[in-house]
């Protein structure tokens, strides 16, 4: 039953390899839909933009909104907070980049490139270390050494422009793309 000449053997080997290879291609093709189904669905992708009314936010106060399932910080900064943020030398920062979705990637982290209107700071409230939500600093309840935010999970301290100053977080809090629809209303995403 196994009387194969070497020629027949070669042909048989070829057929084995060919069917094996095609089978592997088939399995790989089937794998993709099974993997891709876990990516965000069309419905999740469509929920892009949020419109937010900001008139009620007092100076020195922050309100947290939910945007794409994440906390969105909108902080109305006091003149002192703005001044302290502007006074920092960008080159001395742990992360000198603006991290602003509306600006090119290599923009330096000046206060002007972090906040379109100095009074309003809009940030994705996700610590760049491991994703906790940092606590905001306020006059009556200071958090961290830099007057901005402190992440209680692992001690990352951010300044009043949301830039990382101390702790394990590698980069500044992200600024999402947003536009002012009026003086009191912004559209995020």
């Amino acid at each position: 039953m196994a009387a194969t000449t070497s020629d027949a053997g070669t042909r048989r080997d070829f057929l084995y390899v060919a069917s094996g290879a095609m089978g592997a291609v088939g399995v790989a093709a089937v794998a993709w839909p099974l993997i891709d189904q876990m990516n965000p669905s069309a419905a999740a992708l469509a929920l892009g933009t949020s419109e937010i009314e900001i008139a009620s936010i007092q100076s020195g106060q922050q309100i947290v909104f939910k945007h794409r399932g994440l906390p969105l910080f909108v902080r109305r900064r006091t003149p002192a907070e703005i001044a302290s943020a502007k006074a920092v030398d960008v080159n001395s920062l742990p992360d000198p980049l603006a991290r602003n979705a509306a600006l090119p990637d290599n923009t330096p982290a000046t206060d002007a490139s972090r906040a379109v209107k100095p009074e309003w700071l809009v940030l994705i409230g996700v610590c760049t270390h491991l994703g906790c939500t940092p606590t905001v600093s306020a006059a009556q309840q200071p958090q961290g050494e830099y007057g901005g935010w402190l992440c209680h999970c692992h001690g990352s301290a951010y300044d009043t422009a949301g830039r990382i100053r101390k702790g394990p977080a590698p980069s500044n809090l992200a600024v999402p793309a947003y536009t002012f629809m009026s003086d009191t209303r912004i559209k995020v995403g």
Partner: peptide, 25 residues
């Protein structure tokens, strides 16, 4: 089962979401 919701109110909708929105659902 990653997308299906076993609830009388949501089961039918979740199946339609699988058919329409989930990638290759």
């Amino acid at each position: 089962a990653m997308h299906y919701v076993a609830s009388a109110n949501l089961a039918f909708n979740s199946v339609e979401a699988i058919m329409r929105d989930v990638n290759y659902g």
